[in-house]
Lab assay of single mutants.
Amino acid sequence: QTVVIGDTTYHLNNPEAAQQIAKELAKKYGLKVVISGNTIKLK
Score class of each variant (00 low, 15 high):
T2P: 02
A26W: 12
P15Y: 12
T2V: 12
N13R: 06
A26P: 00
A22M: 11
L42H: 01
K27G: 04
I35A: 04
A26E: 08
Y29W: 04
P15T: 10
A17S: 09
A17E: 13
K43R: 10
G37R: 02
L12D: 02
Y10F: 12
T9N: 05
A26G: 03
A18E: 01
N14K: 03
K28A: 04
I35W: 05
L31A: 04
T39A: 04
G30L: 05
E16G: 07
T9K: 11
L42A: 01
V33F: 06
Q20M: 11
Q1M: 15
A22P: 00
Y29T: 06
Y29E: 05
L25G: 00
L42Y: 01
I5M: 06
K32E: 12
K41N: 09
N14C: 14
K23P: 00
G37K: 03
V3N: 01
A22K: 04
V3G: 01
D7K: 14
E24R: 14
T9D: 04
L31I: 10
I21S: 01
I40Y: 03
V4N: 04
A17Y: 11
Q20P: 00
I5Y: 05
K23I: 10
I35Y: 06
D7W: 15
Q1T: 15
D7S: 13
G37W: 03
K23H: 11
L25C: 08
H11E: 08
G37L: 04
T8C: 15
G30A: 04
A18N: 01
H11S: 06
N14Q: 05
Q1D: 09
I35S: 03
Q1W: 15
L42V: 09
A26C: 13
K43N: 09
L25H: 00
Q19W: 14
Y10D: 03
T39Y: 06
N14M: 10
I5W: 11
V33P: 00
K28N: 02
T8P: 05
H11G: 03
T39R: 05
L31K: 03
K23F: 11
Q19M: 15
K27W: 05
N38A: 08
E24T: 10
A18M: 09
K28D: 03
T39W: 03
T9R: 12
V3Y: 03
K41T: 14
L12K: 03
P15W: 15
P15F: 14
N38C: 08
I5R: 01
E16Q: 10
G37Q: 04
N38G: 07
N13F: 10
Y10W: 08
S36L: 10
K43V: 15
E24Y: 15
Y10S: 03
A17I: 13
N14P: 08
G30E: 03
T9Q: 08
Y29V: 06
L31V: 07
S36R: 06
E16I: 10
G6D: 03
G37S: 03
G6E: 03
T9E: 09
I5T: 01
K43Y: 14
E24K: 13
T39N: 04
E24C: 15
K23Q: 12
G6H: 08
A17Q: 12
A18D: 01
D7L: 12
D7Y: 15
A17R: 10
A22G: 02
K27R: 11
L31W: 09
I21A: 05
V33H: 00
I35P: 01
Q20N: 07
E16T: 09
T39F: 05
L42G: 00
S36F: 10
L12Q: 03
V33M: 13
V3H: 02
I40L: 03
N14F: 10
I35F: 06
G37T: 02
Y10Q: 03
D7F: 14
A17D: 11
K32W: 09
I5K: 02
K23T: 09
T8N: 09
E24S: 12
P15L: 13
K43C: 15
I5A: 01
A18T: 03
T8Q: 10
L31E: 05
I21K: 08
V34K: 02
S36N: 11
V3M: 07
V33L: 12
K27A: 11
G30M: 06
L31G: 02
V34T: 09
K32L: 13
Y10I: 15
D7T: 14
K43E: 15
S36Y: 08
K32V: 15
Y29G: 06
K41A: 10
L25T: 00
Q19K: 13
A22L: 11
D7A: 12
G6Q: 05
A22W: 07
T9L: 08
N38L: 06
T39G: 04
L25A: 00
A17K: 11
